[in-house]
Amino acid sequence: MAVDELVDHITPDVRAVIGARSDWLEAPHPVEASEVRRFFQALMDPNPRFWDTEHAAGTRYGAVVAPPGFPVHAFRRPADDSTDSLAAAGDPDFDGVSRAMRVGLPKLPIALSGILNGGYEYEFFSYPKVGDRIQCRSAYLDIYQKQGKAGPMVLVVIEDEYRTADGRPLLKSLNTMIMR
């Protein structure tokens, strides 16, 4: 048995954050038309519901909307954030991403550097419209350890609920992140 297999990453400090739920947090800015345009153009999904105001006015949405999964990406770097997220980019070991799983949740005290997205379970209720202010509330539903081929893995199950500032549900997701 490799030494790694004996390491228990699920310490009392980690156990203490299971169930932690953030407050409702609002994205730094309302949904912007050009932000939606860059999104659907990069997806190569030119459906008129995303850009044609006349067409969209006649749909059940009543106005142009963003693609279903858009809220998941709405939490961008705020304009007043003076900490450059690429400040460490010159470090050859810097992978370009923050270790924070979600804005409103505490960082996990787990000494594993690799991080992989395991997948999602989505439930959709409505689509964001341009101008909507998107809010999100997150929770660590579960954190547990499994033995992988290359050593221990910690699976972090995060629930995210998204709604608009005026209370319209957008979507709910369960995301499994894999640390190893």
Binding site: R38, F39, Q41, A42, L43, H73, R76, R77, S85, L86, A89, F94, D95, G96, V97
Partner: peptide
Amino acid sequence: RWSAAMENWHK
């Protein structure tokens, strides 16, 4: 193009 639209800078 997608990474820039997402502002995801994962190398």
